[in-house]
Design a protein around this nucleic acid. Sequence first.
DNA 1: GCCAACGTTGGC
DNA 2: GCCAACGTTGGC
Length: 151
Amino acid sequence: MAYWLMKSEPDVFGMADLKQRQRSLWDGVRNYQARNFLREMQPGDLFFFYHSSCPEPGIAGVGEIIKAAYTDPSQFNPASPYYDPKSSPDKPRWSGVDVGFKESFVAIIPLNILKAMPALSELALVQKGSRLSVMPVSTEQWQAIMASRCT
DNA sequence: GCCAACGTTGGC
DNA sequence: GCCAACGTTGGC
């Protein structure tokens, strides 16, 4: 079992949306490093749901990987913002995973708090200039974040 | 809205 | 293979 962190803009898809729908395809990842992490995910893995590009950036809760990576259909849909004309069905570029709702935090753990935690100094999220939207989280990092949330 | 940092593209 | 130009991310 592995731990991860995934970013999403809550205006597009946030923790509240996952809570309401309980299960969803996590699509639209268009970065090779992030995609490769998606492909490593296994059912039962847990991830932090991070809200980006919003008034209160931070970790909003926990989700679970329900289904391992498969072809992200949005890459073939010209009407989708995630459309990739250079991808073809016989050689798809991009993958998505199915995720499920686990826990919505009482309060978002804000980015500035995460940045101040010594246990997270190696986490890409808090490193200057990092834009990686899917990243692995170590057991120690996971426990440090879980211990810092409001209950 | 600004802008630093990054990833990708494409000419050479 | 280099690297300038461009588009995007994402915090502030």
